[in-house]
Nucleic acid binder design. Structure first.
Lengths: 111, 111
DNA sequence: CTTCTCACGCACCAGAAAGTACGTACTTGA
DNA sequence: TCAAGTACGTACTTTCTGGTGCGTGAGAAG
């Protein structure tokens, strides 16, 4: 895709596949470390997590910070607040819709 | 996917692939006929358009109405206003982001 | 001395999503 | 009579996302 016919098409394209949005949604709650994200998003593989994080970082949507020291501590956070309303809207709609349809949503414990 | 760990994951899953959201975004402007959608979303194939519309209809997100008469006139519209804020947020963010990044967005003429 | 965690990287493969191409049944306009 | 529009359907192929599994190197814990 190079030329877009509508902003939404562009948005969908830059946000990418199913995992990117989920990762961003977690990061809107505050910055998280790699392993923390893994726990918060059960079902995602390490490969996908790393891959998406790299892409989101390259796109400038996510900020990666290494707190040097051993063992390594790497945190990720939203690079741009402008995404917040989008993620919030999705979150709200998803919640309401899940309730209507009767889908099970069980967030893992945030430790 | 059967069980979700967060509403956003659920939302992404029900909204599905890249085209569904674009179609919905067009429908938020008002109801459109099949051929109209085709013009409004250049790049989509007829197969994809039909397929997505069927799915969105089955999910209860889109309403299909046949105005009988020949030739056929079928219109589609949003079945639920609750999606509007989501689509609007995406639209706004996409627009702002495109401006920042310098992406070209050329909406086709609405006739 | 082995195992565990942290934060990844790489190679390979399967399945799903999307694209290509063509057909249908009817009607209007040139 | 022929093309074109309306609203699809179907078969086949390609692309591409995502999953599996294995390796890394350093320190901490048993």
């Amino acid at each position: 895709m190079r030329r877009y016919s509508c902003p939404v098409e562009f948005a969908v394209d830059t946000l990418g596949g199913k995992w990117a949005v989920v990762i961003l949604a977690q990061l809107k709650e505050g910055s998280s470390r790699y392993g923390e994200l893994r726990r918060l998003i059960p079902g995602i593989t390490e490969k996908m997590l790393t891959q998406r994080l790299r892409e989101l970082e390259a796109a400038g949507l996510v900020e990666r910070t290494v707190e040097s020291g051993l063992p390594l501590a790497v945190s990720y956070s939203l690079a741009d607040d402008s995404l917040r309303p989008v993620l919030q809207a999705l979150y709200d709609w998803g919640g309401a819709r899940a309730a209507q349809v009767g889908a099970e949503i069980e967030p893992p414990a945030r430790r």
